[in-house]
Design a binder for these strands. Sequence first.
DNA 1: TTTTTTATAATAGTATTACTACTTTAAGGG
DNA 2: CCCTTAAAGTAGTAATACTATTATAAAAAA
Lengths: 224, 224
Amino acid sequence: MELQLHIKMNPKLYVRDPETSELGKSIVRIAIDMINEIGFEEFTFKKLAIKIGTTEASIYRYFENKHRLLTYVITWFWTWMEYQLLFHTNNVTDSKSKINTVINLLTFKERDQFILEHINKEVLHKIVISEGNKSYLTKNVTEDNKSMIFQPYKDLCHRIAVIFLEYKPGYPYPHSLASTLIETAHHQIYFKDHLPRLTDFGGVNNNEPIVTYLDHMVFSLLDR
Amino acid sequence: MELQLHIKMNPKLYVRDPETSELGKSIVRIAIDMINEIGFEEFTFKKLAIKIGTTEASIYRYFENKHRLLTYVITWFWTWMEYQLLFHTNNVTDSKSKINTVINLLTFKERDQFILEHINKEVLHKIVISEGNKSYLTKNVTEDNKSMIFQPYKDLCHRIAVIFLEYKPGYPYPHSLASTLIETAHHQIYFKDHLPRLTDFGGVNNNEPIVTYLDHMVFSLLDR
DNA sequence: TTTTTTATAATAGTATTACTACTTTAAGGG
DNA sequence: CCCTTAAAGTAGTAATACTATTATAAAAAA
């Protein structure tokens, strides 16, 4: 089964909706590849324009600056992740298996159910791991937060929190545990690949032990 | 009691050791204030030079670029944190109270025992929370890691891991739990202050509930 | 005391990046 | 076929990141 999915983004994230033109879609698609290849710091609109075969000015018609473009793709990811969670936990009654689904989704074990030709989700996941924090670690957080820019991340977090409460009614830290789980999943994957001494997964080339660790973490906290 | 402490930094972090001159110390001191005030993205050597009353070129004699300067102060912080931990857990036999000390240090509850006139540790802690991740979330991680740039962070992590193992011999994830604890402490403080919906601490204006949450987290995992 | 050496910092640049005002092109409606 | 308007390109400027060279001042040597 293939589901064609259109994610409507917060208009504050763009100047002109990139979904409405071929150039816009190219900007998003190539930007994801390029940020993954050279990193966000080295990434510039000039380099992107050259690779696409357009000009800097044209890219500025779609995104105010490169940080907004980063936030756009990261936010897209969180929205898509929430869709995935909704899809995979629909009609599931056992809250324990819902939690396992959450962990599998965060570690990219679960197969994607949605098709979107112009966004490479494997690569996007890598960007979320390496660059995701940078979208909210700025002096504009408060202002951006008021513009609801981070709503999808908060929605996902809340949905996970609700599952935790379903599993363990009255648990006092459902939201903090949800954000801890999301951030930890990404950090541990990053550390495993780049700073293995910060983990106990050195030398392993898949995310299996991280899934086990996250399972252990969540259920130890909820079952206590 | 006041202890005069000199932290010897990895020479790869600087071009010329800033501890060896007044200008060098000013660069570090004012940079910390400035990064805290305007954020790392807005921070430039030009602005720093003007505030100090020197020139850009002079700052480049001490640090290769602004990212290296950030890594310098962040790394300084981790080294100092490890000293603090060593100091506070010395002669303590009860491993449970050692863990509490770790958590108190990470949330800045413990009083500082070391004096260093030119580094404002309260402000530095804020930078570590808001900008700390940026020192390793780059395309140079692997290279920087080979230069032992992140050794202090790994040392602190390992020392905490050893305490965990002391408390619960054979625990399978001591390093991952240590890095999770450090990162979670900072994220939860940041979220509480800027994105409270990602936590359960909205409206609270101290770190007390975060200490409780981290305690709950660590002991649930180790006591399981 | 004068000269020389050395360390240190300032001057004066360049290349790149971030961003914008203006112009051109192309598509669709009358 | 002309006119309107949306879209993208041209051609800039200001700021940032970085460097080669020069100046200054203190210490060492003559």
